[in-house]
Structure formats: structure tokens, C-alpha cells
Design a binder for these strands. Sequence first.
DNA 1: CTGAAAGCGCTTACAG
DNA 2: CTGAAAGCGCTTACAG
Lengths: 357, 357
Amino acid sequence: MEKNKEKVTAGVKEIARLGKVSIATVDRVIHNRGGVSKKTKAKIQSIIEKLNYQPNVLAQRLALTSRGTIRLAVLLPAISEETEFWQAPLDGAKQALDEIKQYGIHIEQFLFDQNDQKSFSKQVKNLIKFKADGILFTPTFPEESTKLIERAEKTGTPYVLINADIPQTDTLCYIGAEIFSSGYIAAQLVHYCIDEKKKVLVANIAAEIDNNYAILRKEEGFMNYFKDNNLPNEVLSFKTTQTSYSSVSKRLSGLIKKQNDIGAILVTNSRVSVVAKYLESAGLKDIILLGYDFINENITYLKKGFIDFLICEKPQEQGYRGIMALFQYLVFSKPMEKKYFMPIDIITKENYQFYRN
Amino acid sequence: MEKNKEKVTAGVKEIARLGKVSIATVDRVIHNRGGVSKKTKAKIQSIIEKLNYQPNVLAQRLALTSRGTIRLAVLLPAISEETEFWQAPLDGAKQALDEIKQYGIHIEQFLFDQNDQKSFSKQVKNLIKFKADGILFTPTFPEESTKLIERAEKTGTPYVLINADIPQTDTLCYIGAEIFSSGYIAAQLVHYCIDEKKKVLVANIAAEIDNNYAILRKEEGFMNYFKDNNLPNEVLSFKTTQTSYSSVSKRLSGLIKKQNDIGAILVTNSRVSVVAKYLESAGLKDIILLGYDFINENITYLKKGFIDFLICEKPQEQGYRGIMALFQYLVFSKPMEKKYFMPIDIITKENYQFYRN
DNA sequence: CTGAAAGCGCTTACAG
DNA sequence: CTGAAAGCGCTTACAG
């Protein structure tokens, strides 16, 4: 390999030489640590600017290695029979950990039952006992989450919300989709796929609905598309807190028998596979079915042709970015972005095999 | 911040201590550099395994900083009036450079006119003169590209192809979409959006078509979807090497007057905005229009509703990943993936604002 | 075949 | 307010 020997960037040493000071002083100026005379500070700053100095991140990190472990807490729903969705953010967090564990990062998991508020509260308590340096979580239960946030702000602990934000709250950092849009675009797809005379069914299948901001907001986005575009399609609503297949299929079949002109069904969360299973058993191939999340059961029905579109928001990347944001913030004081909106991906039978969660 | 002082991972020093050798010897064993007695080597290896030693990448890189500059060459089409598409991979390469320039990486650009084979050949010559340590390029002209590859393989220079592969050639590393699928999925969308009685038009608008593998392969994918699914839609073909608006619009309007039942048009590359402009001027709002690439002109017509779907394959990320792969390969001997398929993204009016190229 | 020492660019006690 | 020195974990001449 042919190589040059010239330096690409000047370092603290060079700045110190030009400024006729020690590198310790240069470091003080760079990081505004104080204890430097105005005159020296100005001189060094001007040199830094002239040289367009860029710190060597490698060396920075290396020098900090000995500082001890940083403890991050992850508070997310456990995966359940109902859905494996939450595996993805956890995988993302682990992937991040692999990249940064060398720098003394430790992650502790606090998993709760997403249908049980008490289990959430309990894990919040454990988390507080753990005294994390940073927190990654999803606000499944808004009230308890708000308490956690208040506590974190009091102790100055940085935190990142993923997957869903808390409405009307000024959270430190949210990484996830703009949920309204994520419902809105589902409606656009329906609009492309069905006739104006057909009816549309919105199905909310979750143990907890009224308190579930993500579901409500998605539905809102969905309905608004029809309003905004003056579409004449009749939109029906279907809600159930009984998420088992037997219960859902029974209620669905009753509804579909009454309403004969349903052209499309949107399931507002990852439980779309339950509906797909019903459509398969009932032989209803012509209804366009849309839902959320790239999980195995859903992919199965996507392949079979019973699910037509899955909308996904890279949950794994959300976990990954969340941990990385905390890391960068804690180690390099890098400010966190208030809102980092993930892309809203459209997955079909023909592109799912290339998708990266 | 609460912190632990315990080490997460043992380093070479600890291994040296346990093995009663110097760290230089440990290093020799780790990297198989030779010059170590069998006995010592075995001893050290067993310690390394027992400790599950993971090298500190930071320190590795830092120690290599002084080794001099690595020179990477980027060979891509220049952006032109015709299309700004190639800005994205270049931006990606620059983004990668920002992250790694501290480690002595230099990038030289060789831009050519994608409608002029001679300009490609000329830049290949310049590139060879440059004596790059690694090459990132797109094989716009397959024959010349093959020559470049042969030369690179002879000199042992690693190279990465982006955006399009060379068919039937065993290239070292390809980063981009599976192009056939990228046409196939366009057909799926058409299938969802139009009636069986409607006709479909495939438009190839490019100065060079017969030699353009990407366009041909996309069209193949598109046609195959209709075949595979026994769709009755008549598929018409439209080809022109005159890419200007005046020429395209004239020919299109002639064709559309003759064929009155066109329900959808697919443009096989980024020139879809030209067709959109025509549809706008002709007031043809009901024709579904699909094309490729997230570029400004296309987004404009997406917003206006004349383009319905854009299919994108993250060109910026392709450039980014390409440079990173070369960097990792040259600096850390990390083997390159033979094929890294990008996701095939579907962009509409309602999700484009969250897209990350 | 092996080791002592210098260096990568930064941060951090510590001394003055 | 300022500087000399040690250290982060690794690599690399150089000496033996």
C-alpha cells in the first residue's frame, strides 16, 4: 500500500506548540474547564479555529477508559405469547452494547408485562433502586412514565423514549415514528387499493386500548386521511380487549357477515396476524389487510398473501439509537436530539426479504 | 454518576502477566505474526481463550494512526442536468470520510459523464495512475468496468461496486439492491392500484438503454411479476434515448392518445419526473405513476400527486457502506461481504418526509 | 525467539 | 493560572 506521511489533522500537541502553552492548558480551553486566563484562552481559541481542530475521538475515548462503568437501564415490555415485537428494540440495544461495552458500559434490563400496570410500576421501582446513569424506555403506562421522567429530571439522569412519546409532554429525547403519520399512510395505501364504494374496517385489538396512545393516535391519523381527502368510504370501527384468536375470529366473523362490502381492514398494531388467520380460515382472500410490525407471524401471512402491507418503524434501530444516544451524551456530552423520527417503512410480500429492522 | 472500578475486559498486559511474557509476545500471538516458540504460543493462546480476550478496537486504531494515509478512489457519474441521483452516494462517501479521516483516510473522486463511455475510460485511466489502496465504483459501462476489476484483482486492490452489479461476474463486493426485485415490486404496487382491464406502460428513458443492465433487469422483474401472477393487463413498452422534456412529452402524448386505457406508468429510472411533468400539463391525474429514486424533482411531483410511488434503495447509505467496507478491510483486515443487499423502500406522498436516503 | 521502550492523541490528578 | 508526567490499550521498530 502506498502511503503518505503527512498529518491529516493537527492535534493538541501542535496547538500547544503554536500557543507556547502546555497541552493541559489546551485541553482546558477545548473543554471550557476554566482556570485559564482570558488572554491565553483567546489565543488558544484562535489557533484552534485557524487549524479547524477536530479532536481525535479514538484518543478521547481511550483516555476515558479507566473512568469506570456507566450503568444504563432498559425498561421495556417482555416478549409474550401475544407478540414478540419487543424483542427487536432489545436486540438493537444489545447490538449497541456490543459496540460500546469496551468503554465500560453496562446494561441492565427491566422487563414488564405490557398488560399489567403493576408489573410496570414494580420495575420502575427496581430501576430506581439500580441508580442508572441513563434510561431507555417506552411509556406503555403514561402516568407511571411521567413519574419516572420527573424523577429522572430531578436527579439529572438522561432518558430516551422509544416507540411512543408521551403527548403534551416535553420529553428529553424521543426516538420513533411520528405515529399520526404512521396511521395516515395506512389510509393512503387503502385509498390506492380499494374502490370508493367499499367499506373500511379499523380494528383495535389490545388488552388495553383507551390508555394506549399509540393505537389511538394511529387511528386518528388513519381517519384524518379519509377526511382530508374527502373520501366517501364508510369507515367502521372494531375494538376488542380479548386478543385471543378464538375471541377475535368469532367477533370478526359476526361483523363481516353483517357488513358485506368490506374492502380493507387495518389492524392498528402487531396483532394483525390474528386477523390474517381468520381471513385465511374464512377464505377471504380479496380483503386488503394492513397492520404493523415486522414480526414472524406477520411475515408468515404476508408471504401467504393474507396480509398485504405491513408498516414498520425499525424497532431494532430504535433500541440501537437509544443506547447510542445515551452513551454519546454520558461520555462525550453530546447533546441529544429532542425528536428523532424514524422512517415509516412499507413492507410487502415482494420486499420483506430485504428489510432491515 | 455512580461507577464501578472493575475492569470489563482483560487486556494484553494482563495476558502478558499471566503468561509471564512481554506484551510484545502477546501481540505476536494474537496476530499470528510468527517468531514465537510453539510452547509460548500455545500457552498464550490458552490464556487468551480462557479470558475470552477481546481487543480494544479504540486502542488498536489509535496505535495505527501514525501509519500514514490510505488512499481511496471513488469512480461515479457526475451529477448532471438530467439527474442529481449520483449526489447521494457521494454524500454517503463524504459522511463516511468525516468519520474516518482522522485515521488517515483520503478520498479522491473520479467523476464521469454517464452518457459518455470515453469519459468513463479516461477516468479509469486517471484512477489507475492514482494508485488507490481501495476503489468504490458503479459499473455504468460493463466492459470497461470488467477491465478495471481485472486490474484491481491483479494488484490485490480491494474494490466495491454500488448501485448495480455486473451480471455473471464474481465481484468482490456488491452493495445495492437486488435489481430484479426492485422491478418486481413496482409491478406488485401497480397490481394493487389498477384494474385488470387497464393497460400498463413501461417507460425506459435514458441516453443508453441496451447497455444499461439496471434498466433492463428492472424491466425484467416488472414483466415477470405479471407473468408469475397470470395478470391479464396488457403491458406496453416505451423506449427513448432522447431524454429531454420536449422530446419525451411529444412521444408520450402520441402514445397515450392512441392507447386510451393506460392505468399505470412505470419509469425504470429517476427520469420519472419528466413523465410527471407531462401528466401534469396534460391534466392526467388518474394515471398511477411509479419511478425510482429520492431526488428533488421527483419529490416535487410526489407532493403534487403526479408521482404515486417512488422506489428507493438508499443510495447515500450505499456510498457510506462502501467506503466503510473498504476502510474496515484495509485497516482491520475485516473480510468484505460479497453481497450486501439494500432494502427496497417504497416512498409515497405521506411518508417521504421521514425517509432517510 | 523475546523484551523494554516509545508512541498514537487525548485526559487527569498533582504540584507549583 | 499553568505545566510535567502518567496513563488509556494497543503496535512497532529496535536491541539482544
